[in-house]
Write a protein that binds this DNA or RNA. Structure first.
Lengths: 210, 210
DNA sequence: TACATTAACGACCGATCGTTTGTATAGTTG
DNA sequence: CAACTATACAAACGATCGGTCGTTAATGTA
């Protein structure tokens, strides 16, 4: 199982295809992502995919994996460089908004585009997407709990409640920025969480004023 | 152009088909809603649709119209029975949550399922969906502004900001309840808006405590 | 009664879907 | 070098897609 040149070349095109697939899926969803169009976008042939994946579902599963790793690298990891507590919590929110604002994915958010498709369709794909989202929300909850343990959030805070609010205010940027408000929703989402955290934090100077 | 029996019969099946279409689209989206499956669900034939609609896009446009009216009847109208101001604002939020919680549509929310599909695809359909959503958000903003005019919200409130928060906290119930938290997200969404309004309202007794 | 219109249908069209098959080729191993 | 393996392809498959066509039965109008 040594990685010789063949596998290396294969891995390279595999990664290139997955990157394209995640980008396309963030726009058209996992169903709209047809093998024909993906082939055209990557400059390969439809049948070439089956050298890398047994069927379309395997490709979709790997795309979910790829999107998860991308999210971790571009959102979670940068936020972890902020000091633990309420500052890291807000850094996490800002990192997400930066991800959206910079247009890393042409459709904004891979998981948002995919949720509506899989949530009513049981199967491995749905399970994998649901797990990724549960891990993400659990991660937010951990940051909230840590901020509380550090005394940086009022004791009256309920962890799951605040975590829901932070996630909701961030995620909805995708909808609002694309169909209605445009970039203004980024400002609204940032301020909503910032003011909420400042109101709950005994030492608001930990957070920017505006 | 008098409405004789033929047209009446046509209208009846037209409405029945549209109701099915909106329900199916709330689950599978407007693309997933294929004419073949819609025909099977309504017990008619594919080709029968073309007696009512020129092509699929016209059916989709009418489905958007139907979903808009349903939303108005089931959410907006009931909320308007509450006294203007902060109580009506919260009644609007609760009416939405009731709509989701009761499972009026099998997929939860028609517009949520459709947004991700149309937002990157210019055309009449996208325009119509975007208009419906802009009207809804503008309606929320009007209620916020009215509550402020009545002195039921602190003067520091920015209308668009608060409206964004209320809408985001409500809409995200669809995602969270279907892939992660389940019904708990309804509780989170309700409490988030309730506490936010109570904190901003000079007379919190206008709103329930919990 | 004679005629027009409508709802609804079955059969079929070209296009595209995911997938299979067979093949050519480049890289690795004995 | 020969034998083998992984990559990639063109061609074709059955299924399904949105849509057309011609027809039938029912309902209206003159």
């Amino acid at each position: 199982m040594t990685q010789d040149g063949r596998r290396l070349r294969g891995l390279r095109s595999r990664e290139a295809i997955l990157e394209q697939a995640v980008g396309l899926a963030s726009v058209e969803g996992l169903d709209g992502l047809s093998l024909g169009r993906l082939a055209a976008a990557t400059g390969t042939s439809k049948s070439g995919f089956f050298a890398h994946w047994r069927d379309k579902e395997q490709l979709q599963l790997d795309a979910v994996e790829w999107a998860s790793r991308q999210w971790t690298e571009r959102v979670v990891v940068p936020a972890m460089q902020a000091p633990a507590g309420v500052r890291r919590l807000f850094a996490l929110h800002e990192a997400r908004l930066r991800f959206y604002g910079e247009g890393v994915l042409p459709g904004g958010c891979f998981f948002f585009a995919v949720q509506a498709e899989v949530d009513d369709r049981p199967g491995t794909l749905r399970d994998r997407v649901a797990r990724a989202m549960r891990e993400w929300q659990e991660f937010i909850r951990r940051q909230v709990a840590e901020a509380m343990a550090l005394g940086e959030l009022a004791e009256s805070v309920e962890v799951a409640q605040l975590a829901y609010e932070i996630d909701a205010l961030g995620e909805m940027v995708i909808i609002h920025s694309r169909l209605a408000d445009g970039p203004a929703s980024l400002v609204h989402a940032r301020r909503a969480v910032l003011q909420r955290l400042r109101a709950l934090c005994p030492d608001p100077t930990l957070l920017p004023e505006d």
